[in-house]
């Protein structure tokens, strides 16, 4: 494991061993969390002032607290804040799910979106959009699609326990099948019907309402405490199954708990934003790089960084590109080369 971390630019072997059984809250991590919260707040305050309707900071501030004309209130409270909020919570959910999955897979190159959950959710969402044209029920069906896919992958990977590597390979098999059905739907139906579906598959958070903030936010609030508690056994598990057992940690149930939480987070993200790639993959790396190996504090930091990343990506996609693009295109364009670089580095050092 250690050489892998050094391979991806985190020469943390010493810290890794030194803080192994430490329960103390690392002061450095604490400072980083506070810093990230500050950055996140500043970014949100900056993003809220951007938009087609010119508003002063004063107007935005007043409107946020309910003062101003109805037009300003609509822009600030109904349009801008939900979109910013959705970017933050969905980015956080993605990053957290990635951290949890990389923890159990003991492989820093996986994330729930890569191993099939997004493909499963996509086939359900695309079919739903094409066949019903209804967007209000979409998040719920997509969520169910993601959860069912996750369950199928888990069950098919089960063979005296669910080996993480088996999950990756089974997940890629499921992805191929789901991808085939998605392609089938997109080829079968005429342009008018598939266009909204095609745009959905690119991953986007436009048209967010407060529902898109509250539900993913609630899922994070419910799961985060459990996830933090699970970080300790997860760290032990990274030493290998035997070490884990000798420490008296129930291997399979810990793994299952992590998978359930990770899948819930990934599913809620894909349900409300479509398949936004690479946040789940990249952000945990960044968090470990700046704050050291996984711990409850680093997990919180990962969530914050995920929120920052998606908010920045969406703001760039919406306001700073010559043509507006779905945020998923932006995250892929940045994230995929980064991933391939990681893969390249982890290979060459072996």
């Amino acid at each position: 494991m250690a050489n892998l971390f050094s391979a991806i630019g985190m020469d943390e072997t010493r810290t890794f061993r030194g803080s192994w059984f430490s329960h103390r809250i690392n002061l450095r991590v604490m400072a980083l969390i506070i810093l990230c919260i500050a950055i996140l707040i500043l970014l949100m305050l900056y993003a809220i002032t951007l938009g087609a309707v010119p508003l002063t900071i004063r107007q935005v501030w007043d409107a946020t607290w309910g003062e101003g004309d109805s037009r300003t209130l609509l822009v600030v409270r109904t349009l801008r804040w939900p979109r910013i909020g959705a970017a933050v919570v969905i980015g956080a959910a993605l990053a957290l799910s990635g951290m949890l999955f990389q923890g159990i897979a003991r492989n820093p190159l996986v994330s729930p979106d890569i191993i099939g959950i997004d493909a499963g959710a996509t086939v359900v969402a695309v079919s739903w959009i094409i066949l019903t044209r209804d967007t209000s029920g979409l998040p719920l069906v997509t969520f169910l699609g993601a959860i069912v896919t996750a369950m199928v992958i888990y069950l098919l990977s089960w063979r005296k326990g669910a080996s993480p590597n088996r999950m990756i390979l089974v997940g890629i098999g499921i992805s191929s099948m789901a991808g085939a059905v998605t392609s089938f739907m997109l080829v079968k139906y005429p342009l008018e019907q598939i266009r909204p579906a095609v745009v959905w598959t690119m991953g986007s958070i436009y048209g967010s309402t407060w529902r898109d903030v509250v539900i993913p936010g609630a899922v994070i609030l419910v799961t985060l405490p459990f996830a933090i508690l699970l970080m300790q056994p997860l760290r032990a598990m990274s030493l290998g199954d035997n070490v884990t057992k000798s420490l008296g940690i129930p291997l399979e149930s810990t793994r299952l708990a992590v998978i359930i939480i990770g899948c819930a987070l990934a599913s809620v993200a894909v349900a409300f934003a479509g398949p936004i790639g690479f946040i789940a993959l990249m952000v945990p790396h960044m968090a470990r790089m700046i704050a050291g190996p996984q711990s409850g504090g680093v997990l919180v930091l990962t969530g914050l960084l995920g929120g920052i990343m998606l908010l920045v990506s969406d703001t760039v996609a919406l306001h700073f590109l010559p043509v507006s693009l779905p945020v998923g295109v932006v995250t892929s364009a940045v994230g995929a080369p980064y991933f391939l670089y990681l893969l390249y580095r982890s290979n060459s050092s072996m």
Binding site: A52, V199, V323
Partner: peptide, 14 residues
């Protein structure tokens, strides 16, 4: 609005 985001309400308001 465009094929990526068929109707951007804030731009409409503007």
């Amino acid at each position: 609005g465009n094929v990526n985001e068929p109707l951007n309400l804030e731009q409409v308001i503007a």
